[in-house]
C-alpha cells in the first residue's frame, strides 16, 4: 500500500497510476489473477472491468501463472537472421518448452519477443530482468542452467 501511495504522488489522478499499480500487483501475485486485478482496482478505486480492460491490452501483464523464471526471447528480424528460431526449437527439445508455455516442473516460461533493443548483439533474450545477448546453441544453456 505504501508503494501505491508513492506511485499516486506521480500522477494527477488515480487512473494515471494504473499501469505501475498493475506491475506492483503482478509482482506480488506472480501474475494478474482475478484477485490481483481486484486488489489493484480497489487500491485505485476503479471499476474492476476497467482495470481488466487495460491489463489485457499490454503484453507484459500476465494472465496465467508463470514459471519461476521468465525467458523472453526475441525472434524479430535481426535476431531471426542470426539464428533465433533455432534457439526456439532447441528450448523445445531440451526443456519441452513451447512459446507461450511453461515447463512441467514450473522452472521456465517462454515468451517470444518483438525486438528488445539488442539487435547489434543478436540473438538476445531477457531472463526475468537480466539481459543476455550474442546467444548461440551452446551458451544459451550455460546461461539458463544458472536459473534454478
Amino acid at each position: 500500500m505504501d508503494e501505491i501511495k508513492e506511485i499516486l504522488k506521480k500522477y494527477p489522478d488515480r487512473r494515471g497510476a494504473l499501469l505501475p499499480t498493475l506491475y506492483v500487483a503482478q509482482k506480488a501475485y506472480g501474475w494478474l489473477s482475478q484477485e490481483a486485478l481486484e486488489e489493484a482496482a480497489k487500491a485505485l478505486n476503479l471499476p474492476p472491468a476497467t482495470v481488466k480492460g487495460v491489463a489485457t491490452f499490454y503484453a507484459m501483464y500476465k494472465h496465467k501463472p508463470m514459471g519461476r523464471h521468465l525467458i523472453q526471447l526475441c525472434t524479430n528480424v535481426a535476431c531471426m537472421i542470426m539464428g533465433a528460431e533455432r534457439l526456439v526449437d532447441l528450448l523445445k527439445e531440451r526443456y519441452g518448452l513451447e512459446p507461450g508455455g511453461t515447463t512441467e516442473d514450473g522452472r521456465f516460461s517462454l515468451v517470444i519477443m518483438e525486438c528488445i533493443g539488442a539487435c547489434d548483439r543478436a540473438p538476445a533474450m531477457l531472463v526475468d530482468t537480466d539481459f543476455h545477448a550474442d546467444l548461440n546453441e551452446n551458451n544459451i544453456f550455460e546461461i539458463l542452467e544458472k536459473y534454478e
Binding site: L19, P20, Y23, A59
Partner: peptide, 12 residues
C-alpha cells in the same frame, strides 16, 4: 520541475 519514469508494458 518534477520528473518520473513511467514504465510501458510491451506494446509497440
Amino acid at each position: 520541475f518534477d520528473l518520473s519514469v513511467h514504465q510501458g508494458a510491451g506494446a509497440y
